[in-house]
């Protein structure tokens, strides 16, 4: 027992000595000319938006349009990497949906791609739309399905080599959240009527408290889509940062001995990312339908008892 533990201690000491040696080597290698930081910076560039499209043979410069001035705001509408993959995933969603619909109409028993799409459609209808919004929610089913498939394809494209995750750009998720915000308000106004919708903003309390309640309720309208935006953005970025940190270990140690760790963990994180891509698309859709359902439930009376919180 004693021999074992001392041998173990020796091994640990050797290992830590070699690790600290390689750290020292890495740090001393990072002397001015060689730029250790530059390598890391290049890794992070992979996550950023850029005007270049990378593919196995090299890279392609994407078109750059001059910015447009509307009022005091400047809009740069040039096609960047993220915009390219956003448009590509929109195209994929359209083509797959049309193909699946055609295929399912032809035969009564769905198979292949038609079957795959139908599984998701039925899942969103029966597990997301109807439980959260009731039968009236079926009106908004096309919107929920579009959101789900669009986010799913955008997330998955980022996992393909040379692909980029559009949803890891905060502007993209903010746009998605803006659409969700508009749909939540539209659903609430259509279900309750404009009068009840505005009355709900006062929280149903005595008028003397309105100066407090109305700003709080209005703020509450905006925090939900903001959380949607930040959640998708942070989740899609998080996995990539972990992957880059693992790959960064190779650059840090400059030794093939550390290779097994990044490879094993990289594969595991990639598999986790596959799950997260699906989960985040589901959660975005789920929460959107939940918030739409909150606004729609008030039509069943006693809205103030339930919502005056």
């Amino acid at each position: 027992m004693r021999i074992d533990s001392s041998a173990l201690a020796d091994t640990v000491r050797h290992a830590s000595a070699s690790v600290s040696d390689s750290v020292h080597a890495a740090v001393s290698n990072a002397a001015p000319g060689q730029g250790e930081k530059l390598d890391f910076g290049h890794l992070l560039d992979h996550m950023k938006n850029s005007q270049e499209l990378e593919f196995p043979g090299g890279h392609l410069e994407l078109p750059h349009f001059p910015p447009i001035q509307v009022g005091g705001i400047t809009f740069d509408l040039s096609i960047s990497k993220h915009v390219f993959f956003l448009l590509l995933s929109a195209l994929i969603v359209m083509l797959v949906a049309v193909y699946a619909a055609r295929r399912n109409r032809k035969s009564s028993v769905p198979s292949g791609v038609g079957n795959l799409v139908e599984v998701f459609v039925v899942f969103i209808r029966d597990e997301v739309a109807v439980p959260n919004m009731g039968k009236g929610g079926l009106t908004y089913l096309p919107f929920l399905l579009t959101t789900f498939f669009f986010i799913l394809i955008m997330n998955l494209i980022g996992l393909i080599p040379y692909g980029a995750t559009s949803t890891s750009n905060v502007s993209v998720t903010a746009g998605l959240a803006l659409v969700a915000f508009i749909m939540i308000q539209v659903a609430a106004i259509r279900a309750q009527g404009l009068k009840h919708y505005l009355a709900h903003l006062s929280g149903g309390v005595h008028w003397a408290l309105w100066p407090i309640m109305i700003p709080v309720e209005i703020l509450g309208l905006f925090t939900k889509p903001f959380a949607l935006c930040m959640r998708l953005f942070a989740n899609m970025n998080g996995g990539h940062i972990v992957l880059l940190a693992l790959i960064g270990l190779v650059l840090l140690f400059r030794s093939p001995a550390v290779a097994p760790l990044p490879v094993l963990f990289g594969v595991a994180i990639n598999l986790l990312e596959l799950f997260v891509a699906l989960l985040q698309a589901y959660i975005f859709t789920m929460l959107t339908s939940l918030f739409m359902g909150f606004g729609m439930q008030s039509e069943h009376g006693d809205e103030h008892a339930e919502h005056a919180h």
């Binding site: 597990e127 439980p131 959380a227 949607l228 930040m230 959640r231 942070a234 959660i283 929460l287």
Partner: peptide, 19 residues
């Protein structure tokens, strides 16, 4: 389902702080 909703809401509060 209700666990996922609550977890997502907790996560939302987390992201405000992370921001």
């Amino acid at each position: 389902t209700s666990m996922i909703i609550s977890a997502a809401l907790i996560e939302g509060a987390t992201f405000f702080a992370l921001a």
